[in-house]
């Protein structure tokens, strides 16, 4: 399963880039139209639930990106194919942005629904920890001067963080039941109407396209960075 990246692949990625950017903006605009104009307001939360259409996709992709990051780090350790390291490094920063966005939009959504900006609930706390894991991954790589070592070390850290996230989720859940028996965040999730599913699906697709676009741009960037490091050594 040894995939090798050659110049043809890079040219293909390069030529796909404008189309991807166009597709991302197009789907985002349709998604915005549906989520702001075409969908009905929620009958409990009113119009504030429109924040869900950007909050939920960014939270999903924050988690998915970390899974891809940790998975590619594991695959890199198993197969020793440097492609996986490049994938991990190109995807990490997009994940960090998505995590930050889900935290900010979630907090803005929390103010009208719960009355507070932040709740010390398992989901929110583990997202916050996830953000710091992304920061640790990115900045540890930058802090170590020997870049080959730096990738190995930060990959090990990403895998440890992947083990740590479920432990934190579990422990904060346990801690919550101890400290605040009636958590306000435990609103039962009602089944979502189809008219709300369409904008959610569109925004998810748009976020996915954004993830792919920026990851491919960063993929090229990381490859050039690697080449420059190799020539300078």
């Amino acid at each position: 399963m040894y995939i090798k990246i050659n110049n043809n692949h890079i040219e293909l990625i390069k030529s796909a880039n404008p189309y991807l950017i166009f597709a991302t903006t197009f789907v985002f605009i349709i998604g915005l139209y549906y989520s702001l104009f075409q969908s009905p307001p929620d009958y409990i939360q009113g119009d504030s639930m429109r924040i869900m259409y950007i909050h939920v996709p960014s939270a999903w992709f924050a988690l998915m990106t970390y899974s891809i990051l940790a998975g590619s780090c594991v695959l890199w350790f198993i197969t020793r194919n440097p492609l996986f390291n490049v994938v991990a490094r190109s995807i990490a920063q997009v994940g960090m942005v998505f995590t930050l966005m889900s935290l900010i939009t979630g907090s803005i959504w929390g103010k009208p629904t719960w009355g507070v900006w932040w709740v010390w609930d398992a989901r929110l706390t583990s997202m916050l920890i996830l953000f710091f894991l992304y920061i640790a991954y990115i900045f540890l790589w930058q802090a170590i001067s020997n870049k080959e070592l730096a990738s190995k070390i930060s990959a090990a850290l990403a895998i440890i963080g992947f083990i740590n996230i479920p432990i934190i989720k579990f422990s904060v859940d346990w801690w919550n039941t101890l400290h605040q028996p009636a958590s306000i965040s435990k609103l039962s999730a009602p089944s979502i109407d189809v008219s709300m599913l369409i904008p959610l699906f569109l925004m998810t697709a748009a976020c996915f396209l954004f993830l792919v676009t920026v990851s491919l741009i960063r993929f090229r960037l990381v490859l050039i960075e690697n080449k420059m490091l190799r020539t300078s050594n």
């Binding site: 950017i21 985002f28 915005l32 702001l36 009113g46 119009d47 504030s48 429109r50 924040i51 950007i54 909050h55 960014s58 920063q93 997009v94 942005v97 930050l100 966005m101 900010i104 939009t105 803005i108 959504w109 103010k111 009208p112 954004f210 676009t213 920026v214 741009i217």
Partner: peptide
């Protein structure tokens, strides 16, 4: 009545995505 929350969250979201890109 939720204008501040909705528009600010959409604004922050798209602004930072564009800046990042």
């Amino acid at each position: 009545g939720y204008a501040i929350f909705v528009w600010s969250s959409y604004g922050i979201f798209f602004f930072s995505l564009i800046i990042f890109l």
